[in-house]
Amino acid sequence: MKVTIDGIEIDVPKGTTILQAARMIGPEVAPPAMCYYTKLKTSGGYCRTCIVKVTQGSTANPNPMPKPVASCRTEVMDGMVVENNTSPEIIEARKGVVEFLLINHPLDCPICDQAGECKLQDLGFQNGSSKTRYEFKRREFEEIDIGDKIKLHMTRCILCYRCVKTADQITNDRVHGVIARGDESEISTYIENIIDNDFSGNVIDVCPVGALTDKTFRFKQRVWFTKPVDAKRDCKTCCGKTRVWLKGEEVVRVTARKDQWDEVEEFICNACRFDHKKKSDWVIEGPSPIHRNSVISQNHYEHLNELKVQIMKQQKALGFMPIDKQP
């Protein structure tokens, strides 16, 4: 099926969503996604940040779609033409969605543990406005413990439903869900401490904001002072392939590995996540790929420096003269 997104044509299999097709083209046309998660069935459709304009439905029915559509839940049709970043209307509408997500979100990133790896921060920076038009008190909730390892701070939640789907699909007891309605909705485990499952920790990784955090790591380190490496161990419960976050020789946190779109590659078990905090527990495979725009990438600079030294050494050995030193 041929689909054109922001003027770029691509051939994709039937059943591909507009968002997936856009991701295949590349990050420059991929709409931001705050609730969709490739590995979670029925995810997406909620946040509305991924909306796009369909200017031609298909070759068979070339009419435009009357409203913007959620690209994460709309399958492509042959001959479909989509506008994302090229549509001023979509850029304005998305700005509105970002504003809605932010009006009840505290603007206190400096004291939030998610800072530096928060999708809402990125979204606000890339698609939002620099000032707020909201003048009212923001929604607030008490912090809640979900078991002894997970902290839920609803105040920061954007109700993306990812954790709900994770609890539903990855763990075997459905004790995690949404209670109340509208802007009073709350993520809940009904009886606060009941989530006791080998895979419950994954809700932390799928949470795009600082609503679900790892109590064994929370407030111990700013994430940009740590160094992520891909590591593995023999694990009977999960794949054992993780990302280990180092501070010096100390393992400060273990998470699942994430891909280019910041989605978990394979879910990991709680034992790997919470109970193996010694470097000797892990076989380190190498530095994790971190996007160069991320603040976390600063810990890769040491490699960069090392690389520069190596290059200079080689150049010297080969008798190259740096360009600026040439006569």
Binding site: C47, Y161, R181, G182, S185
Partner: peptide, 21 residues
């Protein structure tokens, strides 16, 4: 409408309350 929004999608969940305020 604010009171009755189910709260699934951000524009309705947040926008209705904002308009009411």
């Amino acid at each position: 409408y604010h009171h009755e929004s189910c709260g699934q999608c951000s524009p309705c969940r947040e926008g209705t309350g904002w308009m009411e305020k």
